[in-house]
Amino acid sequence: MEDTIAATLAFLREAERLKDVMRSGRTSRGRPESTAEHSWRLCLMVMVFARDLPGIDLSRLLRICIVHDLGEALSGDVPATDQTPDDGRAARERADLERLAAPLPAGIRSEILSLAAEYEAGKTPEAQLAKGFDKLETLLQHTQGANGPGFDYAFNLDYGRARTDAHPLLAAIRERIDAATRARIGDSAAQE
Rank of each mutant, 00 (worst) to 15 (best):
R174W: 07
M45W: 15
F49Y: 15
T4V: 04
S188N: 07
D82W: 00
L157Y: 06
D96K: 02
A166L: 07
I185V: 03
T181F: 07
P54N: 11
R60Q: 11
A130Q: 04
E111H: 00
L53V: 11
A190R: 10
D3L: 05
E98A: 12
G55R: 10
L18N: 05
D52F: 15
G25F: 14
L169C: 11
A91G: 03
R26N: 05
K135F: 10
E175F: 13
D87I: 00
D3M: 00
I112C: 00
R161N: 01
P105N: 06
L18M: 01
D178L: 11
P168W: 06
G55A: 02
L170T: 02
R31V: 14
R92K: 08
R51L: 15
A7R: 01
R13D: 06
P32M: 12
T27A: 12
T4E: 09
E37M: 10
L115R: 04
A190M: 04
I64H: 09
R26S: 08
K135G: 01
A36T: 08
T81R: 14
P149N: 14
H167S: 08
R184G: 03
V67Q: 00
V48G: 10
P168K: 11
L42C: 05
D52K: 15
A162W: 06
E72I: 05
R99L: 01
T4Y: 00
E118P: 02
R176K: 15
D187S: 08
D158G: 12
C43W: 14
K123N: 10
H68T: 01
A90L: 02
R94W: 05
A179Y: 03
R161D: 07
F155C: 09
F155W: 04
